[in-house]
Every structure is written in structure tokens, then in C-alpha cells.
């Protein structure tokens, strides 16, 4: 039974009620899963109904971050159709408003699911009656990971202040953007240019999305506005994890500036999380730091991060 709609729809209703957020980052071991778990926890504390989804299909461990044992049913069971309904693999976490769909670590082929399966998974997850679906993506830049990132309303890119992590972060951005541009390419010629850009040593000399635009400009000028529009709509948000000093925190601004100047990508700096021994101790005890020690600096920063992301805010560079 549907209730009668009010005559005037309140302004707030214009905001999409159900959002998909994803947490990626090219490199492994930089705290993506912990960050995702803590972010989900804080969002739930802020009154949102949240489902965490362990989309790290090859190396799922989000349940451990939450201090839970590996659940009996996982996303793998849904993918293999051992259960029919996505609700069947949804488990409570013990935190009000926060539930989990565990990853498919029991299913070794899961990391390579086919496109059709991916679409089915995404559609069913999207149909859940929640406010925010928070995906923990695995490491790397495989299509599975990038596709989840690209369908998200909020794409969070985790890096730690280390050269390797940042290098992979840029690689992640380029891979995701090229995949998006390829899907939007209006002609075979443009698609071929995007394809060759995926090879960093391509003969066209394309190293960045801006180079790509310059090459497309010569080949098919009419396609440029379309590609520019796609680039403008691509808006990754950086989170710097394991920050040890103010210089580390400032790197977020450098990344955003570098993305704009040298990649033509409009990124944002969503926030940072300090390096914190408490987090490490909690991991050892298989407890989530955000709930075990709610006042530790990391928990507080993740709370700020959650608030900022909900309000679409980012850390601005002010002089």
C-alpha cells in the first residue's frame, strides 16, 4: 500500500535517498578496509542506514575489521546463486544501522566475475532499503574494481603518504577515467585512441588525459566537448591515511592541485586520518577502533570525514 504523496515535495527530497559510496586505492595494505569499516560505523552513528559491502572479492576481510567471524553466507553465495536473495547474505554487525555483506573469499573465481554478474550484483545491492551502500574495493586497477568505483555516487580514493601509494593512486585515477572515456567515446577512432592511451608507452605519446584530449582534438574535434564533459563529471575524493605530521596532511592539497594541472581531473581532498597506535592495537584484538576507542584521534577524524562527505564538503586550500 502506498501512502498518498504530500502535495509539496520538500526540498531535501531532491537529494538521492540511496547512495553508493566506494573506497578504493591502487595499493594494498594502506588501510582501505579499516577505513571503510570505520566510515560505515560513523555514518551509522550519524543516523544513516548503512550496508558495508566487501567487494574485495579476492581478499575479503571486512568482517575481521568489524570484529566479526567469517559469516556463513557471503556475496559469493549470491553470485553463484546458492541463495536467491541478496538479503540472505546480509548480516547484522551489532552496531545499530550498520549491516554487512561479506566478501567472497570462499569462492576463488570471484575476483573475475563476468560483467553480467557484476551488473546483477550491483542492481540487487542498489535495491536494498538503506541510505548508503559502502563498497570496500580491493587493491589494484582491474576492471571489476574500477567498474564498482565508476558507478558510485561518491568515489573515495585512499592513499598513504608514500611514493608507491601515490603513484598507484594516480594510476587508479587514469585507469578509471580512461574506462569512463572509452565507454563515452562517440566513434571507433576515439575508442582506439583511448585504448592506446592505456599503454603508458603508446606511440601517440599520450601520458595523461590532457594529452589524450590533444590527440582526440586532431583526430575528431567534435568528440572533445563530450570527453571534457565526462572528465568534468569524474570527481574522485582523496583520503590520506596514516598521516604522521602536518606535511603529510598537506599532501592532499598537492594531489588535488596536481590532478587539476597535470591530469585535467577535478579531484577533492575529503580528509585525512592520523597514524594511530590505537588502530594497530585494535586490529590485533580484532576490534574496530572507531567503536572500541571512540575518542582516539583516528576515530574522531573518520567522524569528521563522514560528516564532510555527507555534506559534500572537502578540505579547501586557503592561502
Amino acid at each position: 500500500m502506498m501512502e498518498a504523496l504530500p502535495a509539496v515535495v520538500p526540498v531535501a527530497a531532491a537529494r538521492p535517498r540511496r547512495q553508493v559510496w566506494s573506497v578504493g586505492g591502487g595499493k594494498g595494505g594502506i588501510g582501505k578496509s579499516l577505513l571503510t569499516a570505520a566510515l560505515g560505523f560513523q555514518l551509522a552513528r550519524l543516523g544513516r542506514r548503512v550496508v558495508l559491502v566487501d567487494a574485495d572479492l579476492g581478499g575479503a576481510n571486512l568482517h575481521t575489521c568489524l570484529g566479526l567471524a567469517g559469516p556463513a553466507l557471503t556475496l559469493g553465495d549470491f553470485i553463484c546463486r546458492r541463495v536467491e536473495r541478496i538479503e540472505d547474505v546480509l548480516v547484522e554487525t551489532g552496531v545499530s544501522g550498520l549491516r554487512l555483506i561479506s566478501g567472497a573469499s570462499d569462492f576463488l573465481g570471484a575476483a573475475n566475475i563476468k560483467y553480467a554478474q557484476k551488473v546483477r550484483v550491483l542492481n540487487r545491492i542498489r535495491s536494498l532499503e538503506v541510505d548508503i551502500i559502502l563498497l570496500d574495493l580491493g587493491a589494484g586497477t582491474s576492471f571489476n574494481i574500477i567498474d564498482f568505483f565508476l558507478v558510485s555516487d561518491v568515489g573515495i580514493l585512499t592513499v598513504v603518504p608514500e611514493p608507491t601509494s601515490i603513484e598507484n593512486g594516480y594510476r587508479f585515477i587514469k585507469s578509471a577515467l580512461y574506462r569512463r572515456l572509452r565507454a563515452a567515446a562517440p566513434s571507433q577512432a576515439v575508442r582506439a585512441i583511448v585504448d592506446s592511451a592505456l599503454d603508458q608507452k603508446n606511440p601517440l605519446g599520450i601520458r595523461t588525459p590532457l594529452d589524450l584530449l590533444a590527440v582526440v582534438e586532431r583526430a575528431d574535434p567534435a568528440a572533445v566537448p563530450l570527453l571534457r564533459k565526462e572528465m568534468g563529471a569524474f570527481h574522485p575524493r582523496f583520503v590520506i591515511n596514516q598521516v604522521r605530521d602536518p606535511a603529510d596532511a598537506a599532501i592532499g592539497h598537492q594531489l588535488v592541485t596536481a590532478c587539476a594541472r597535470h591530469l585535467g581531473v577535478k579531484a577533492a581532498y575529503a580528509g585525512y586520518v592520523p597514524f594511530d597506535d590505537t588502530v594497530w592495537r585494535c586490529v590485533r584484538q580484532r576490534r574496530l577502533f572507531a567503536s572500541a576507542v571512540p575518542d582516539c584521534p583516528s576515530a574522531q577524524k573518520v567522524r569528521e570525514l563522514a560528516r564532510g562527505l555527507l555534506q559534500g564538503e572537502s578540505l579547501a586550500l586557503t592561502w
Binding site: P161, E162, P163, I166, E167, Y170, T208, A247, A250, I251, H253, Q254, L255, T257, A258, H262, L263, L317, W319
Partner: peptide, 17 residues
């Protein structure tokens, strides 16, 4: 800020330029 960002020890730029 720019000096830092484009400096020799900058980790934000080394893989881009």
C-alpha cells in the same frame, strides 16, 4: 606551496612529471 609540491623530495609529483 608550489616550491614544496615541485620540489625534489615531493612525493605528490614524482610519478606525474
Amino acid at each position: 606551496f608550489c616550491l614544496e609540491m615541485y620540489g625534489d623530495s615531493s612525493i605528490a609529483i614524482y610519478s606525474l612529471l
